[in-house]
Amino acid sequence: MNWVQLTRAAHAGLRVDPALALSACATVHMVPLTYGEIRRVASDFPVVLAKDAETGQFYPAALLGLEPHENLYWNGARLAAEHVPLNLARLPFGLGGADLAAAVICVDLDSPGIVAEGGAPIVEADGRESPYFAGVQATLGELAGQVAPTRGFIEAAVQARLVVPIRLDIAFDNGSKAELAGLYAIDEAALLREIAGIDTETAMVLAAMALSIDRIGALVRRKNARLADAAVWFGADA
């Protein structure tokens, strides 16, 4: 990765192929989410909570794989999901700077999405920003605007004691195992107990998170299918 601040002087000629840019997620097993997208994303992925290693604070995340660097939704060309999380849709762009209010747009110059030909320009021939780049800016704006609501949502869930640790101890068909620690979920029973004190919209998002944990079963099926394919490829006895 090679993140630099985006400037018109240096990058006006940049062309981006968004589908190729998304391939950076091939080795990503967790993607941080914002409050506003959890309900949508939870229809595709298990939505869990994890702790930031530096600060110890919770953040919501979509679970894409069952071990680090594994994305079971990436089929080599596209992400097999209806809703792409904002933190993947923004690629190869991102927000940089310590202060959110004065954040600057950055670009990863090593991204496979930066192309010489094809793709979409970020600046049109007449000097205006391209529709593609306007979309990227909207996504980045949404990410910045969601920081505070997401934090508030998580704090409320922790305060109400809805967050519980989950431990994934999975045995796959071929006998191998995965252990995923450091994950947390919204506890369904706790949510039902506390629901009277929670506003409706927040309650729906919490419910979506609680129910999405069932999708971990789908991840295990994807993994088993992948292991079976690999066994055929390497000629091992399945």
Binding site: G56, F58, V158
Partner: peptide
């Protein structure tokens, strides 16, 4: 030092 800024979570 970190704990001066952030809190341990209850779980």
């Amino acid at each position: 030092n970190k704990l001066a800024e952030f809190r341990f979570q209850p779980v």
